[in-house]
Amino acid sequence: MTDDVILQVKDLRAYFKLDEGLLKAVDGVSFDLRKGETLGIVGESGSGKSVTNLAIMKLIPSPPGHIAGGEVVFMGDDILKMPDDGIRKIRGNKISMIFQDPMTCLNPFLKISTQMIETIVLHQGLDKAAAKEKAIEMLKLAGIPAPEKRIDQYPHQFSGGMRQRVMIAMALSCEPEILIADEPTTALDVTIQAQILELINELSERLGTAVILITHSLGVVAGMCDSICVMYAGRIVERGTADEIFSDPKHPYTQGLIKSVPRLDKVSTQRLYSIPGQPPNVINLPDCCPFFPRCERAMDVCKTKYPKVAELGDKRTVACWLYGEGK
């Protein structure tokens, strides 16, 4: 089982030194990614989802940010210990990223062809003509009609959904091992969202790419992911397969999240549930369970100590005093 794990994140910590204090954006996150697996990372805004993935690529803006500890083992090497040159060979080539807002992620001054060909030439060592052919092929796979004509256009001539397709084509053009999709559908309308997710799914299956899908939409992870990490205040509070998380959520936060999604299959006359309160400010957070002020089942111990991570089965963990030895 372990030999097809391609990315292993161990106790990753990314801190930001701000004037107000130390912001622990990611505080001890661990997970494994297997070949071809789709992993969802869910959480509220500011829970550290995006920073986790920037840290994996060592793209944390520094200063003010720095990686305070942990390992990111990709194909046997720790990315965090690599020199910049080595990381640049991985970025875009072995691990690539799709960003949230396709409107701003393409350089408005360069043709699509220039931007795609550059990446392919840089990483794959193809000549320009071959790279262009490859780029056209990828655009076609990503569902861009008439790619041989569209490729010579500028980003402003594409709609939002089309640009996200271009981004996906670009990200997958070097056939990476891992695709990190950071809220790839947030900026798109609902019908396009479904198409884009379908596209990511289909292409990753075809190319055998593992996907890390960052989102705050539970609906998206339910349909897409094999396994799910739920993040809260910079830590993973619950981890498991999609089935386990949705059918049997353990952590009160996960339970709250799932309860607060409107269901079409259940007629209800009640108001939609919402978790009371606001996510905590993670600057100078004390060593307690960060969720206890909002938790319906909070106990005294929650206020004094962060819970130990309880192993409930294979790859199934939860960080809550209700489980494991603290129970």
Binding site: M57, R88, Q100, N107
Partner: peptide, 17 residues
């Protein structure tokens, strides 16, 4: 700090580029 620069960096572009 714009996103397309971040995107370029995530694609492996160096400072000069």
């Amino acid at each position: 700090n714009s996103e397309f620069v971040e995107a370029a960096r995530s694609m492996g572009a160096g400072s000069g580029r």
